[in-house]
Design a protein around this nucleic acid. Structure first.
Lengths: 204, 204
DNA sequence: CCAGCTAGCTAACGCTCGTAAGTTTCGCTT
DNA sequence: AAGCGAAACTTACGAGCGTTAGCTAGCTGG
């Protein structure tokens, strides 16, 4: 990720901005103030260019949001499928799935904040598509819990309720986690994976 | 709560809007599209009046948000203090505190969504004040957990992590709960209170 | 060494926003 | 019946938004 120094002190080099840098700046500001609370002028300022120059690297403000959300949800699902591939055991799978999900929310805080706050601001074809991806993830977690109940590993009244609770407590890590704080992202993720199993009443 | 019929079919009565109705309309729209995503014209339209007429019932758009957030956080803290007053037992207190918090998020979904999404859009004196109230709540939950660990009722690695997880999984109820769905608000609240104790590893 | 592409720039657009000022309408009280 | 006040209205403003058009400078490849 290129931080793209807001202003190069030396005037010798023609500074140029990549579309990755635009996405990165947009990501930071959307996470901070929300999509509607962020003006393109603020993104441009952060990159050291004028507002219209942004259009050399993007098609529209909405496209920025769409790209960010789509990429994030794609990565989340990829994480998930990678995590549950190693085993068929619901206990192992739920621990691994929660771990990668929690870990992602600690290490990709901005993405998580934007997805959770501003997905609803997407234009309609994309909105439904993105909601479907989230639902797919939720259903997958739920089915792990259901299988765990069936085989006696879990004891929880309602798999849906548990899956919501597990996912959303993990999401919230993005709100308070700070890199360089008392706990590493991995430690937090391990702890949350444990919480997930406790919610499902696995006596580990 | 006065729903204030958007348009009275009968033209006989001079329809008049109260400031409670304005707050209610703002609450609905802020919850739906976010503070920055909502225009005063939309609030006015929902009330069947013209935009400038809103100023007979409020001072500014920001004041609307401030009022809504302040009232909600006040009620949350009142709920909490009412819930933990009955007992000194950390197990009983954590169950009761989680129950009322979860219940509030099921029964006051709009308020919860606005507080969680748009508190950061508040102007600076209010922002710090509101953050302080949330922190106060979080500290109170954490201290219950810490006391539970000390007396051996709970076994959890870190009280802070657990309190975050418990609070945030409850907050998210506002995102999916629907009145008239398969489970009542009370049932969900009870289940979540149980989740909280499981996270803290109380073998109930 | 020049042509062309890239990525800046300025200027300007049309629109919407929040808000202010002043006016009209209408029900209630006296 | 008159008058007052509340709450609606119209009109208008200045600012800021996202976006377009057209121009310019500089690096790159032939």
């Amino acid at each position: 990720m290129p931080p793209t120094d807001t202003r190069s002190a030396a005037p010798e080099a023609r500074q140029t901005v990549t579309s990755e840098a635009v996405l990165d700046a947009a990501l930071t500001l959307f996470a901070e103030r929300g999509y509607h609370g962020t003006a393109l002028s603020q993104i441009a300022e952060r990159l050291g260019i004028r507002t219209p120059s942004l259009y050399n690297h993007m098609r529209s403000k909405q496209e920025l949001l769409e790209t960010l959300v789509a990429a994030t949800l794609r990565d989340v699902l990829a994480d998930f499928h990678g995590a549950v591939a190693d085993s068929e055991d619901p206990v192992v799978q739920l621990r691994a799935a929660t771990r990668v999900y929690a870990l992602r929310h600690a290490t990709h805080r901005r993405e998580a904040l934007v997805v959770n706050r501003d997905t609803t601001s997407l234009p309609e074809p994309a909105l439904t598509e993105m909601r479907e991806r989230r639902r797919e993830h939720e259903r997958a977690i739920r089915s792990i819990i259901t299988r765990g109940i069936e085989c006696g590993a879990f004891a929880v009244g309602n798999a849906g309720l548990a899956s919501f609770a597990i996912l959303e407590m993990s999401v919230s890590i993005a709100r308070w986690f700070r890199e360089g704080g008392p706990r590493s992202a991995e430690q937090v993720a391990d702890e949350y994976a444990e919480f997930a199993l406790r919610i499902c009443r696995y006596r580990g």
